[in-house]
Nucleic acid binder design. Structure first.
Length: 259
DNA sequence: AGGTATGTTAATTG
DNA sequence: GCAATTAACATACC
């Protein structure tokens, strides 16, 4: 489930469990693609360090590990942050145990997640071509960044280099709230529609951040609670159209979101 | 058993 | 160079 609000929830949990704690033991249960830094580097960046501030840019979470190094985590499709008790949680890929007891784990059954090290969150975002976080970006900056693009509106929202944090579900929600067909090309959107899209995205994410990751808590008047085959548009009752846009499963209201 | 999945990236094609 | 599409990654779940 990890999109911006979910990752923000992971960050808060990580911070609650780990901030101010000193790492006594590091277990790395990840190899290959999951590790963007050598295992030995991850180990030495964390072992013996007191964990500090946490940050989030888009779908990446960062935790300062002292020694001017930050741990960076991406949660792929199935990543999570879990508290560690006696034994490692299932699918643990990185386990940190603290001096004095307790610990925190990065779990990820499907192994699409990533474990990395960074000099700073900003430097990491630069190196990896991450655009500004969707909750930090201003409307003006959004308009400037999408100017001249010809991609479809959904592909635009999913492009982490344009803005970081929006994934498949929240892209659908934002487009539905803004009444924009997901395949509409940006160049065909009036300035007013572009602003509408930005505001819909921002307000939807802001509301989601009240209870990160809790999709049950979303208003029933929104798209996401109805986003399934056979679901109906909560505004007009029309059956939602399922399809593939930008290579991803997409739902929209065929009556209200026209090209 | 087969289809699907909230993410990213490389390869391919237009 | 840009944009769209598809496959691949690795695994769980229905």
């Amino acid at each position: 489930m990890p999109e911006l609000p979910d990752v923000e929830g992971f960050r808060r949990r990580f911070e609650r469990l780990a901030k101010g704690r000193t790492v006594a033991r590091v277990d790395v249960e990840a190899r290959g693609r999951m590790l963007l830094a050598p295992e030995s580097a991850v180990r030495s960046a964390l072992r013996g360090r007191r964990l500090g501030a946490t940050r989030r840019i888009g779908k990446w979470m960062f935790a300062k590990a002292g020694g001017d190094l930050w741990l960076a985590l991406h949660f792929g499709m199935t990543g999570d942050v879990e508290e560690v008790g006696e034994r490692d949680p299932p699918y643990a890929r990185l386990v940190l145990r603290f001096r004095g007891g307790g610990g925190v784990a990065f779990t990820d059954p499907r192994r699409f997640g990533r474990i990395a090290l960074a000099a700073s969150p900003e430097a990491f975002a630069d190196e990896h071509g991450l655009g500004p976080d969707a909750m930090e970006l201003t409307e003006r900056a959004f308009l400037r960044r999408i100017e001249g693009r010809r991609v479809g509106a959904k592909a635009l929202l999913l492009d982490q280099g344009v803005l970081a944090g929006v994934g498949n579900l929240w892209a659908d929600e934002a487009l539905w709230q803004a009444r924009i067909h997901p395949a509409t090309r940006v160049e065909d959107l009036e300035d007013e529609a572009r602003r509408r899209l930005f505001r819909a995205m921002r307000s939807a994410l802001r509301r989601a951040l009240r209870k990160p990751g809790d999709y049950e808590a979303l208003p029933r008047t929104w798209l996401l609670p109805h986003r399934r085959v056979g679901g109906r548009c909560p505004r007009c009752g029309e059956r939602l159209a399922p399809g593939a846009v930008a290579g991803r499963t997409t739902f929209w209201c065929p009556k209200e979101q026209r090209r």
